[in-house]
Simulated scan of single mutants.
Amino acid sequence: MENQEKYTALANRIYDLDGEVYKCVGSSLGRTFTGKRENTIRTLSMIMYTKPDSHLLRSELALISNMARTIKDKEARSRMMTEYDEILKELESLPNVFGSTDIVDKERVALNLAANREKMSPDDHMVICISRTQGSAGNDIGFELADSLKINYYDVEIFDQVLKRLEAEKDNLKDTENFTDFNKYDRKEHKDIKTRLREFNRYHGLKKSDAVFFNMSDLICELAQKEDCIIMGRCADVILKNNHIPHISLFISAPFSVRAKHIMDVRNMSLAQATRFLKKMDKQHRKYYEFYTGEKWGKPENYDLCINSASYGIKETIDVIQRMLNQQA
């Protein structure tokens, strides 16, 4: 009953505010609430009571506030906006009307460095994982961002270190051909029985590509725990999430036509060649990421921030990312 009385009182204040704003503006657009007072109060109260329809109340309030901001007389505008703010605070204090139930995922927030800069311990590091579509200049953005932040950048270097680790673990140091031609995307390997048996023994029953991935995962975790760095691709976002290591995950992409033009410029390809190349590389990136992570590559909710690099260019994209990083600093 107490809440019902609050709903009715607030509904009356909203109705009166709408009338006062209309008088001050004198707009031909008319009032937000044109029905009879009694019916309008009942409807507004019901919206607050039912809660699932609170977005309707938010829309009505937005109409009133939008109109109030057009009042030319500063004193009247200030009075109307003050009343609006007070009503809004009252509404937000009510249980589950709107704005009182957050969408936050506590587990993701705990790993999101951008949301927890002030809570970072000396053991935490600024680790940025960047996934990107081919031709979106993701690598250029990652490299220049690392240079700007003065932190380490890892791309093919990760693979180099993983291969060296595997190389050192081999029994026969002369047998190097199995590593030099490794293709992380190609899982359809055609090898003779002798080669398969040799790899089976060396990698404890794992396929070479799987052994490389697991060793690479260990290295990524080691890097993230000891230094600030940017890691390009390599499923680093999911690897760190699964190991509960704080990081920021970004996905950089651009429209296909823009990416095709970029590839034509940097690789001196024709449009047909660039198109085939992009489709092939996107397919390989997706196949590799989804096989090893079980997540959807490029799906927005899997990342902290998705950026269309074509809307900004390399320099401005870096600026957007840095602003996100610095907002909590």
Rank of each mutant, 00 (worst) to 15 (best):
Y49V: 09
R37Q: 11
H125N: 14
F98I: 05
E92C: 11
T43G: 10
F33E: 05
E118C: 11
E38S: 07
D53A: 13
T101Y: 03
D105A: 09
L94R: 07
G30I: 01
I64H: 00
L57Y: 02
K74S: 10
L57A: 08
K51G: 12
N39Q: 15
P52I: 13
N96W: 04
T34K: 07
I87G: 06
L111M: 00
K36M: 08
L88N: 07
T101P: 00
L61H: 12
M46W: 09
R42H: 09
R58H: 10
E86S: 13
F33Y: 10
M67C: 09
R42N: 08
K89H: 03
T50E: 14
R108A: 14
N116E: 13
M81Y: 00
K36T: 12
R77M: 14
T40G: 06
K36E: 15
E92R: 15
I41M: 06
H125A: 05
G35E: 05
E118K: 13
T40W: 03
G30S: 02
E38M: 08
D124V: 03
L57N: 07
M120P: 06
L94T: 07
K74R: 10
R37F: 09
K51P: 01
S59M: 11
I103A: 12
T34S: 09
R37N: 03
G30R: 00
